[in-house]
Design a protein around this nucleic acid. Structure first.
Lengths: 216, 216
DNA sequence: TTACAATTAGAACGAACGTTCGAACTGTTA
DNA sequence: TAACAGTTCGAACGTTCGTTCTAATTGTAA
């Protein structure tokens, strides 16, 4: 079931550009595969479904990806790595811890809505991977969680208030990650509006509302 | 794929007690099946897994339940109906809208933690059922959502504050339903503590904290 | 052109899938 | 006892699963 992440791929890229076309096509395939996993679930999607959707033969899929499990792993790893490095970059420009948390929320929702299918696969097929693959994804996840939790701990210290950080972070993640079950672009606006609303709830709760209108 | 909910069952229960032993055994089987669905997912669990776990032969499963889809439907319907009627009963004794929402949260989390596996199956296998089955579950779900949203609208009017009800309710559901991905009884306390913490975040946000200790 | 590796594809593998079927049990009623 | 519905089961149905194999095809370097 579990095996290290080293399998087919190219072993010795010549001296030219390091696989431009190769990786671009591979990226396209991953996109299509993500859509299938998103719609049918990991177990519900067959390699034949994936091969049909990507336009690549069944045997070709195995040439590129080695196994169905590894295909899911590559999708999850790429998605998670991207959102992680993106949030790090955004945060490097903030100083206030409240602003940091609000940036974290906005970045998360922005990425979430921009890559809804990939994020659903990440959220929904969370426990599927085990072994080495699962450990690697879990590690990235823990880093991501840590960033938010550290921001929160800083906020607590600065403001001198006390609450359970773990519950708070995980509640925040719940608010944000659950949207894949209900988001409707016509009803719910964009990432900016949603992150402002969720940020407000998280910081001040619903009771402190009143400030509507404004904000594009 | 979809068919009405009328299938095997008993058609004409004699005049004695209305199927006491029958339903009790059926309940046991549903419990075991819930555990399997919870651990392996709907698509990942085979009828042979389910038959093994329940101790009933493969053919026996079909005698009782008709199909794998109907088995999931029965689990979801029973779980959802129960939590819905339970929350209605709890709410009938409250008057304040804030107290109502806090009661809603507490009831939800209490039931969630008491029946973690069933609630995970309900949350995680949400989009699996289609046709008549799916419509029926969706209907119960909408009722449940409505109760919370009406409470929230009442709260808004009473307090004269303004915020987006839809986003608020769905954020609250996200907070609560996400716990199946992280809850650890050793770290996170019971339903009472969690619902107090989440209720606080929802009403006052994290900034209004400070009141720790106390309350078991 | 030849040569060679990277890529693609059709066909097939055994295993497991959801479901069905007819026969064997069981417990009650006459 | 015989009869009969309700229940249980082993065995098998046809299909699809993830994966592998071998051979054909492609693109590029010499």
């Amino acid at each position: 079931m579990a095996s290290p992440a080293t399998r087919p791929r190219r072993q010795a890229p010549p001296r030219h550009q390091p696989e431009p076309r190769f990786d671009r096509q591979l990226g396209k395939i991953l996109e299509h595969a993500t859509e299938v996993f998103c719609n049918k679930g990991y177990e519900g999607a067959s390699m034949r479904d994936l091969s049909r959707a990507t336009g690549m033969s069944l045997a070709g899929m195995y040439h590129y990806f080695g196994s169905k499990e590894r295909l899911l792993y590559l999708i999850q790893k790429h998605t998670f790595s991207t959102i992680l490095s993106q949030v790090r970059e955004c945060l490097s420009q903030t100083t206030s811890s409240e602003q940091g948390i609000r940036t974290f929320i906005e970045n998360h929702l922005e990425y979430f809505l921009e890559h809804q299918q990939a994020m659903k696969v990440l959220s929904h097929e969370d426990e599927v991977l085990d072994g080495e693959y699962g450990r690697e994804i879990a590690h990235i996840k823990r880093e991501y969680y840590r960033i938010c939790r550290d921001l929160l701990d800083r906020y607590k210290k600065e403001k001198g208030i006390e609450f359970d950080s773990r519950t708070a972070v995980l509640s925040l993640f719940g608010m944000m990650n659950w949207i894949y079950t209900w988001y409707n672009p016509r009803l719910d606006g964009g990432a900016g509006q949603l992150s402002r609303e969720m940020g407000n709830i998280f910081f001040r709760g619903i009771s402190a509302g009143k400030r509507n209108g404004a904000g594009k």
